[in-house]
C-alpha cells in the first residue's frame, strides 16, 4: 500500500497499491508520473527537495539561509520527549534542518524566490525558524526585485514553540504586506496537501494569486476539529482545493504536471514591464 508517509519505503516490489483508489500501480509509472496515481489522480505528498526538483529548472535552485535551525525557547518538554529531541528526530528522518527550504531559482526561465515547505518535518509546522526564513525570503525578493513563490504544506503553527509560533503569523503577514506594498512583482502561493491553520491564516492566503494541487486539503481548522464542534459529518469534498475553487477562495486548481508552466505565467506578470 502506498500512503503519503511510506511512498519511498517500498523499494522491494515492482507494484504499489494506491491508498486512495486501492488499485495496483506499476511503480516505475507512478514515479514517472511525479507521484500522482495514474488511475485515480491522487496527488501524493512530495518532500521539499522533490518539489524543488519538480518546479524549478534543473540545477537553478540555490538555497539561502540554509543554516538556520531552531532552539527550544520555552523549555518545552513532555514526559515522553523534549522539543530538542523532537527536532533531532525530525532532522534525522528528513535530512533537513527545518520545515521549509528557501532559495532563489528559475521556473521555466523566470527567476524568483521560492519558499518550499516539507510536511515530513514536524508536519510542516511554522515555528520561529520557518517564520524567519519566510520573512527573509520576502525581503530577498524585495531587494532583488524578484517575484515570490510559496509552496505550502503545513498543519499550521508549531505547538512546541507556543506563543512564538503564533507570532510568526504576524511576522510573515507583516512581510507579505510589505512585499505587496513595495514590490511590483507577483506573489503566488501554491497550496499543497495539506495547508491549514496558522500558515493558511497568515502569509499563504495573502498572495496575489493562489494555486492549489488537485484534492489538497485546505482550511483554517482541521476536519476532525470541525466535526467535533458541529457534531455532524462533513459534506463530501469539504475543504478540498476544488471546494475552495468553487467558492472563489483560490484562483486555480492545477495538476502536478502543469504546475511549472502555470506558476511561470503568473510570476511573469510585471517582469518585462
Amino acid at each position: 500500500m502506498v500512503s503519503n508517509e511510506n511512498v519511498n519505503n517500498q523499494e522491494e516490489t515492482k507494484w504499489l497499491r494506491c491508498s486512495n483508489c486501492r488499485d495496483l500501480i506499476y511503480k516505475r509509472i507512478f514515479f514517472e508520473n511525479q507521484k500522482v496515481c495514474p488511475l485515480c489522480n491522487f496527488h501524493y505528498r512530495l518532500t521539499a527537495h522533490e518539489r524543488i526538483e519538480l518546479l524549478f529548472d534543473k540545477g537553478s535552485f540555490v538555497e539561502i539561509n540554509a543554516h538556520l535551525s531552531s532552539v527550544d525557547l520555552l523549555g518545552f518538554k513532555t514526559p515522553e520527549e523534549t522539543y530538542e529531541e523532537t527536532l533531532r528526530r525530525n532532522q534525522e528522518k528528513t535530512g533537513l534542518k527545518e520545515a521549509c527550504i528557501t532559495g532563489r531559482g528559475k521556473i521555466k526561465g523566470v527567476e524568483c524566490i521560492g519558499i518550499v515547505f516539507d510536511f515530513f518535518f514536524m508536519g510542516g509546522s511554522m515555528g520561529t525558524v520557518v517564520g524567519e526564513k519566510v520573512a527573509r525570503a520576502f525581503e530577498e525578493a524585495l531587494s532583488k526585485e524578484l517575484p515570490l513563490v510559496a509552496v505550502t504544506a503545513s498543519g499550521g503553527a508549531r505547538m512546541q514553540e507556543g506563543i512564538f509560533s503564533l507570532m510568526q503569523m504576524a511576522k510573515t503577514s507583516l512581510l507579505a504586506g510589505r512585499f505587496k506594498r513595495e514590490s511590483q512583482k507577483a506573489f503566488v502561493t501554491l497550496m499543497t496537501n495539506p495547508t491549514t491553520g496558522g500558515v493558511l491564516a497568515s502569509f499563504a492566503s495573502l498572495a496575489d494569486f493562489i494555486i492549489a494541487e488537485p484534492g489538497a486539503l485546505i482550511g483554517f481548522a482541521g476536519p476532525r476539529v470541525i466535526e467535533k464542534t458541529v457534531k455532524a459529518k462533513l459534506p463530501k469534498g469539504f475543504q478540498t482545493a476544488e471546494f475552495l475553487y468553487e467558492r472563489g477562495l483560490i484562483d486555480m486548481v492545477i495538476p502536478r504536471s502543469k504546475l511549472s508552466e502555470s506558476i511561470s505565467e503568473v510570476i511573469s506578470i510585471g517582469v518585462n514591464r
Partner: peptide, 25 residues
C-alpha cells in the same frame, strides 16, 4: 475563531490573515 462549515466556506483563514496584515500596517 469558529471552526465550522460556514466559516470555512467563507474563508475564515483569509479573513484572519487580512486582519493581521491590516492591523500591522
Amino acid at each position: 475563531a469558529y471552526p465550522g462549515i460556514g466559516a470555512e466556506e467563507r474563508g475564515q483563514a483569509w479573513a484572519i490573515a487580512r486582519c493581521i496584515e491590516k492591523m500591522l500596517w
